[in-house]
Design a protein around this nucleic acid. Structure first.
Lengths: 266, 266
DNA sequence: CGGCCGGTTGAGGACCGTCAACTGGCGTGG
DNA sequence: CCACGCCAGTTGACGGTCCTCAACCGGCCG
């Protein structure tokens, strides 16, 4: 069965923070006392964004990063002709706009795909975590690496794979990422995307995406309905996609990787 | 005329460091005394790599980053079938594998395209710079942002542009980046790439790349010969590519962007 | 000399985009 | 209440961009 946020939050304070914490804990063992400052801060900076509304505006020099507590977001670039290209999907537990920490204006915009609950991590908090919670700090930066690796894999997806492989690969990636935070079963997950958004992310037309989805259903029994996906045979889908999830960097960090990146107040 | 490294190095100590320093100085005004530790370190860690040889091996958990002092490199991912996809070109003054700082094993390999002179920046040096040379440290991290932005733009290039636009856009990007370090004239630059490498980076076949280059020559007078490119009409090429270089983040950093990222020793 | 590599050209076809039309669901407003 | 419009999804016909396969050229080097 598919887990939802509310069905698994244990305490009021914990509510909504757990996806990020759960993911970070996969990277590294994190003692509870190190997690408290992060969890508290996320709790205090919660906000809600409506579907289709802008979560992070282009040109916004934030100086803080955005954590998706619940819901899906998409990072996209607005092109000269007004069209948009989706560059990344942000799922619960993901961190958006790591580069905002340097004070750079975002050259992309991030929109909410469905109702999104988010929170912010300030530069100051990151500084404090680097000293007071080095393991948490490391895990956060590991997350940034993972995010870059996903960006690179998207390039490969579009550059080298056929339409069928491409869609299948994206679905496998989303499945793996959602599994990590407990938002997928072994054979399916909630997918709050229209075919147009799926098409955009895969650099295809809507029509061809539609036909490709049909093909995936015929080939591997992939079911799309009512905002959810079900893999009748997950291994078949991964095989079609030639999916290898190593790039997600999900395997545990070597703990002797003793660098603790943090931001110093200047 | 095209400038070469040797023709513009002023002092022996300065030799080969100047491309990085020149680029960083575009981001931010850097006092000479802050630059000394960086320049000295680069000087001490110089190494040379032969054409086609591996500069950074896949799986290598470096803990230090690599600076291209001279020559071109390519970051590429080896796929399951043994083929490779080029993800980025690294030009003189560029920094490779920023993620290596966290101790992550590289999931890509970086090869030298021609003879490459490189140097390393250790985590320890970055820590010291963050304290002793905050402006240099900021500029280095700004460079990392620029590198990520280029990665995103490559996705857009492959996702949304036709073959002609795609090649033209890549050429415009390389031109802008080389101009920044003084390695291009207003109408051309040295291009140490085979058509096969150009094709790979643009996700096209060699044959179609060849025909596209011919088309670019017919449309905009772009000349390819003997490892160099000449734009008869640079503005025409940019127009074909719909090139807008804002994503390169070349405009000067706001100096009130007062975050000083650095790595703390743990 | 022969082999290899990079570049070039041609013919044919596949994959995917374009254009067009139609469906069903949903909310709005007459 | 139904009419209407809009949006997401679906299907078909057609065409173009780009890939595949094949061949050839010139330069370089052993």
């Amino acid at each position: 069965m598919l887990l939802t946020e509310t069905s698994r939050s244990s305490s009021p304070l914990d509510e909504g923070n757990s996806f990020l914490v759960r993911k970070l804990s996969h990277y590294r063992n994190l003692p509870a006392d190190e997690l408290l400052p992060l969890e508290g801060s996320l709790q205090r900076s919660r906000r809600t964004t409506q579907p289709r509304a802008i979560l992070i505006e282009q040109g916004e020099p934030a100086g803080e990063i955005c954590v998706i507590l619940d819901g899906w977001a998409a990072r996209q670039k607005v092109l000269a002709d007004g069209s948009r290209q989706i560059l990344a999907f942000h799922l619960p537990g993901d961190i958006c706009e790591f580069n905002a920490l340097l004070g750079a204006a975002a050259d992309t915009e991030t929109i909410a795909l469905n109702g999104v609950k988010s929170a912010r991590i300030t530069r100051r908090l990151l500084n404090e975590l680097a000293v007071a919670a080095p393991r948490v700090s490391q895990a956060l930066w590991w997350e940034a690496l993972s995010s870059n690796a996903i960006q690179r894999e998207w390039l490969i997806n579009i550059a080298r794979r056929s339409a069928t492989e491409r869609i299948a690969h994206l679905l496998c990636e989303l499945h793996s990422r959602l599994l990590l935070v407990g938002l997928a079963s072994s054979t399916g997950f909630q997918l709050p995307l229209t075919q147009a958004q799926l098409a955009n992310a895969c650099a295809m037309t809507v029509e061809h995406t539609n036909r490709t989805l049909r093909k995936l259903r015929d080939l591997a029994g992939v079911q799309f309905e009512a905002g959810s996906v079900d893999f009748a045979d997950p291994e078949a889908v991964r095989s079609i996609a030639r999916f290898n999830g190593d790039y997600l960097l999900l395997k545990e960090m070597r703990s002797e990787a003793s660098s603790t990146p943090f931001l110093g107040a200047s």
